[in-house]
Amino acid sequence: MKVSRVLSYTTRHLYLYRRSLPRLMEVFYWPLLDLLVWGFISVYLSTYKGSLPDFVTFFVGALILWDILFRCQQGISVSFLEDMWSRNLLNVFVSPMSPVEYVLSLLLISLFKLFLASTVMILVAMAMYSFNIFQFGVLLVPLVANLIVMGWAVGIITTGIILRYGQEAEVLAWGIAFLFQPVSAVFYPVSVLPPSIRTIARYVPSSHVFEGMRHVIATGTFPTKELVWAAGLNMVYLGAAVVFFYLNFKGVKKKGLLVKVGE
């Protein structure tokens, strides 16, 4: 593996965002709209004092964290789609760049997009709702890291499916993360879920991240158990995603489908 090739291909996407205003806006547009809607709902609910939690912290914090997962997944899948749409995949796969290097370049570009979107969201949340995500302190690192890894795992799986089924599966690039949202318990505790869904949630890394976030808000103590669960599950998810992509890539080459996706 050559790092220079990974970085080279990352610049291909950076060139894209440098020039394309619609693409750049897409990075900010939805997160900002989400933040505005959920932020105002939180502010409104906060006017009802009582035993309810701090809505702004719960909702806005959860939203910013959820967006990390979503952006990472989308950063990979949409960047892959960019190559598919521009009929450039064959040029990529006849170059010395390996599929692993290609996927790594997608991971890097997803971090770049995440950085842009998160910076804007964090600043807007501070300015409009006086919400400071850094109130989580050092805990923010494992929370964010776990969401990034889960976003990557889901993104790699999505890309593998698109590779196999081509344009028919494009919609997954935008929708698949939302499949995990109900069981991730982003805006509510896992305990409110029906027992069967609660069981599923136990095996979704992001549910432990959001439980961890709520734990620290409620108790101020480090949610070690939740984070260990999230990290362990993420290792399994990422491993499974890599194996899935590898097998899919192999299968696609065997069936001659790589050429069809690439042209």
Binding site: Y9, R12, Y15, R23, R87, N88, N91
Partner: peptide, 16 residues
Amino acid sequence: YVSLPYSLTVRENLTV
């Protein structure tokens, strides 16, 4: 039948 990334300039494509 194979193209190059549309949004990149000729020079950027060749550089990549």
